[in-house]
Amino acid sequence: MSASPQVPQGAGNSAGSTVNAPTRVHAKDGGSSNLGTFGVKSGLAQMLKGGVIMDVINAEQARIAEEAGACAVMALERVPADIRAQGGVARMSDPHMIKEIVAAVTIPVMAKVRIGHFVEAQILQSIGIDYIDESEVLTPADEEHHINKHSFKVPFVCGARNLGEALRRISEGAAFIRTKGEAGTGNVVEAVRHQRSVSSEIRRVSVMGEEELYVYAKEIQAPFHLLKETARLKRLPVVNFAAGGIATPADAALMMQLGCDGVFVGSGIFHSGDPAKRARAIVQAVTHYNNPKILAEISENIGPAMVGLSIDDNLKGGRLAERGW
């Protein structure tokens, strides 16, 4: 994919086309003006490709994830399955807990903030977190606005169910997209739906003429320039992981074969019978996603998977994927 999507900039320098642009970075002002460019924000997501990002709630789980080969961990106070079961307002985690996780591992640490809660994001940036997930899994703080992510040095990942939603998030400054799926269910059906929806829309726009793109941009409420760039690249202009319901190595490989760049696994690991084994198996499944023989080997004897939930109107905790505007 192109490393430099055409994205309006809010933080740092433009990371527009770098074709002739080696001189575009100015190290004046003490060299601080080149921090937090869109290039380094989306670049970290590119480094996570082909990897598994695991939800953890304490330093001990973070260590298990690191030993299992996670490329990053997501710190949160409760995994989505528990948020569903227990209800109540889910918020950003205690910064002290996040700092403990940062101290325990060497891989990047991400943390979730509520949709629209830019102060939670400011707090996480100030403690040096590596990536922020503006997540529908937590209770939204704003039912109209998302965070203006351009004004942060720390990069953001956001959820999306379809192309329009993904491009709206990128236009707000997200440097990384994940399909939403339905978190905390252990049921991959929604993740598949969202990924298929994004890829089928991309296939459609990739053959559209410019006039059609103007109309389609209006229809899906996406910025035209990002839609045009997506059509040109034939993929999202930033890295795209799968999330929400992945519970087995086969689920992870399925999402990879559907065109995702990597996966997030939330409750699927630490709600299973043998988290360390399952985590390691899912990490291998993402690397060898196209090799059924290896997938068969690594799926053996990894203990019981988390108990899955069927996604219908009676789903406890409701449909989280519908949050986000």
Partner: peptide, 10 residues
């Protein structure tokens, strides 16, 4: 350091 110290330089 962490990601917020990531940078570009000529």
């Amino acid at each position: 350091g962490s990601q917020v110290e990531s940078f570009e330089a000529p």
